[in-house]
Design a protein around this nucleic acid. Structure first.
Lengths: 341, 341
DNA sequence: TTGAAAGCGCTAACAT
DNA sequence: ATGTTAGCGCTTTCAA
């Protein structure tokens, strides 16, 4: 059925089929410049029946503009990042910009590679997770000559614009809430990722807040790999076996927190009376648990939206200067697993 | 610090800085052709100190090859698709191909748009979820002149290559297992998505298998939006209130199944004695639940890998012909929620 | 309102 | 081993 051409169609094909110059065809297809209704229709008809698909490679080279925004994130499995992406997509909706995703697997070297690849497509902007990058990566970002928005984290120096929350502050707030609720023997459960700077900063904030009240983290445990839910379960069991007198467990993410929650419920342990729990992120998933896990919202979609808006505004020329900073407020949700006093 | 050039560097800049012709610079940067070690080093040094980033737009136009594989999926929030993507990435690792993701939000119209956008970048191949597309989308796929792999589903006609499982068969297998286990009053809980063809096919397979034993679905309920876990909880409660004599609940995905499982456990209902449960997908998440939910593995990563391999093989010229078909075997996991007889 | 010419930054193909 | 020439398929700019 289909005319099995080997060669993809070009503007010239549409031009010939419609008897209109390539230039005018181009104008019609881009809705640019004045074209009479008559020719417009002839061109569109020809393009449609031929099945013409424009070549953006050529268009981008000629126009020197690529309407792509590179979004560089550590992972797609973490829930958090697809939500950030939703925010980006939502904000870019209605502009001519489109997001393109790159994944680093939490590796700085891979981040550097992915960034280099992205930049070689000459995108209109870059949104990149985190403030910590390799030296060459930072240099690339600085030299790129396009809007750069570092997201998620505001504790540190940004190359250009910055949107996120202070994870140190988030940890501190949680530490204060835990202390105020009367918990004193606190265990920490997290990921074995020295490069997860945001988790590290939360931990720092937490320990500092507790230290202010003369409390030290009583036990800690880290995991890597596997199902976060079951790891949360296992780690909780291990930790409570080792340190049965703990009265609070702080998890570096909601998923392991949920695992711990399910385990403790099975054991018939009183939450939040005998032991309190908190996670981090505020993932929607938690809504379906038997108890609402205390958590702190990381403002994922908002971050994506704000970051994309910065790029869109600068791209459209509406905003000239760079270096925007937006620090969002992490919101504490007590849920059912953190006493209020 | 950084030389704040407005204009991005070109090959010519590197050429001038190194005193080597553009062509030779190009060869060095691409590791193509014979270049003496001496010039190679001079060029690399120049490129590095200048901070040159190649322009792939220009390169792609000149070479008529774009090493991108478009991957078009309904959603990133569904867990399933990030896992498919991992498979794709894994298989493309080591080749020069790179995945680029497009998301359709389960809308055929958006799929058509995303596909058009992707094709206009002239990718080396397309991996697209599902066999159902709009007429124009199908036409584009047919005319594209590149390898196309439709994934996830094998029940229907593919444009070119096809990798997936038969969801009708998956539903049928589950129906048989349910019947063999002795369950007779079966409820179905799913998503309110007329366009989720795979869920529909599983449902068809299930009902057909049960019909073969003279059993009809006794009750059904559908949801849309919200947290799947809590929806599973709510729907389960609603359904059992309405139809208390059900002895089995089949959920169209694991997440709502997990919600139902948690709810029933809270109610102290005997699983799988009083009531049996099964979901679909085999998501890793389930490992951490109090009981292992019966499910059926949808072979997500394998599908991504196999699809990407087809594209890579054809792209490298190792394989000439198209139309490959790979039907994977959905594996039933009884878990703890489906009796064995 | 339409068309013609020039060139975006690179690489294939051909010299040398 | 290195250089030269001629485009890739569009869009920008200028002319008609």
């Amino acid at each position: 059925m289909n005319s099995s051409n080997k060669r993809p169609l070009t503007l010239r094909d549409v031009s010939e089929a419609s008897g209109v110059s390539e230039m005018t065809v181009s104008r019609v297809l881009r809705n640019k410049g004045d074209v009479s209704q008559a020719t417009r229709e002839r061109v569109q008809e020809a393009a449609r029946t031929l099945g013409y698909v424009p070549n953006k490679i050529a268009g981008a080279l000629a126009s020197q503009r690529v309407n792509l925004v590179g979004v560089i994130i550590p992972s797609l499995k973490n829930m958090v990042f697809p939500e950030v992406l939703s925010g980006v997509s939502a904000a870019l909706e209605g502009t001519e910009l489109q997001p393109v995703v790159g994944v680093t697997d939490y590796s700085p070297e891979k981040e550097e590679k992915v960034l280099f690849e992205m930049l070689s497509w000459r995108p209109s902007g870059i949104i990149i997770a985190g403030l910590e990058h390799t030296e060459p990566a930072r240099a690339m970002l600085e030299r790129a000559g396009i809007p750069i928005v570092e997201i998620m984290d505001t504790d540190g120096d940004a190359v250009d614009a910055n949107v996120g929350i202070s994870h140190r502050r988030a940890g501190r707030l949680m530490g204060e809430a835990i202390h105020e609720a009367g918990y004193r023997k606190i265990g920490f459960l997290g990921t074995k990722m020295p490069l997860d700077h945001r988790a590290r900063k939360r931990f720092e904030g937490l320990t500092r807040a507790l230290a202010g009240h003369g409390i030290e983290i009583a036990d800690q445990e880290f995991y890597s790999g596997g199902s976060a839910l079951s790891k949360g379960r296992e780690m909780t069991q291990a930790m409570l076996t080792r340190s049965p007198d703990l009265d609070f467990l702080y998890y570096s993410n909601d998923m392991i927190g949920a695992g711990g929650l399910l385990y403790l419920q099975e054991q018939g342990i009183d939450i939040p009376g005998r032991i309190g729990l908190a996670g981090f992120n505020g993932v929607e998933l938690l809504d379906g648990l038997p108890l609402q896990l205390a958590t702190m919202d990381a403002c994922r979609a908002e971050i994506g939206e704000a970051a994309a808006r910065i790029i869109a505004d600068r791209n459209s020329g509406a905003v000239k200067e760079g270096g925007q900073r937006i620090e969002l407020e992490p919101k504490l949700a007590y849920g059912d697993t953190l006493r209020r006093d």
